[in-house]
Amino acid sequence: MTIARWTRRTLLQRTAFAGVALAAALAVGPQPVAAQALDKASVGVLALSSSGPIFIAKAKGYFEREGLDVTLSMFTSAQQVPVAVASGDVDFGVTGLTAGFYNLAAKGAITMIAAQSRDEPGFPLSAYVATNTAHAAGLAKPSDLKGKRIAITTVGSTFHYMIGILGQKYGFTVKDVTMVPLQDVPKMVAAFKGGQVDAILAPSTVARQLVADGAGQILGWAGDETPWQLGALFTGPKTIQTRRPVVEKFVRAYKTALAEYHAAFNVKDASGALVKGPGYDALLTIIADATKQKPEIVAAGLPYVDPNARLLIDDVVNQVRFWQSEGQVDKALDPKSILDLSFIGQ
């Protein structure tokens, strides 16, 4: 949409504008520049706390400070966001990494430019939950999942990969478990409560609810077992080519918010317990408003982010290799070719 309107003249005008604005900003220190000089950009997000840094950057005006007028487009499933970026409906996207994401990237439609959240020890995001029956029959720890029936959302989802890396850690493959794809979490919960599967991989809120209902037992957390790169910030290769300054500004604002988020939510004390950092309550309110959830629920499932937006490149490579071995991503894809980490200097 926007790209089509970027003729050379407007490009020159806008970069000139931005240049003047930047000079002015440098002269008087960081402060919001005049409204008409703002570059328009849009970002596709899910209403989840993993998109927290984007909400913070928007609410605290970090995008405006960089000279960007950023619109947030809310999506309901992780699969829609990369599609919207590929089709040009939004300029940027932040979501979880799935096989579908890598297939779009393999076709040259999207490029990863920075990290989103990651699964990290001590940050409970996704749980392995066993039914009471399976638990009584000896399913007591994540490594016991070999040979069991596990409900997931879809083939190629983040849950599918989490079973994959769990297997890599404990010496089994996804062929050794029966994955039951049920499309969405409500159907997974129904199959779990009906005793149709032995275990599910569930987001923390769902997992805690199942335990509270007395329907199952949490065996462990993916973050403790297998830390991995859950999501990324990405854009279209065309946007990087034709609107590089916009991407640079966006990433700068994003990193400012990431650092603030990290300081508030991700810092541990000497004993390893999480401590509330500066601005904890204010930031929590921003995320709770954006995700339309109660602050205490948001606080229980805040993911870890790298303060410098650095990606776990080894894990991204492992993800691509895993999907390729499953036959779900083109074998010819070189994982490094879909990364452009020049914006975060990694």
Partner: peptide, 17 residues
């Protein structure tokens, strides 16, 4: 939870883009 089936196949192809 269908492993095979033309519907499951179409769904999977859609999920994998």
């Amino acid at each position: 939870g269908a492993e095979y089936g033309i519907g499951a196949f179409v769904l999977m192809a859609g999920n994998l883009m």
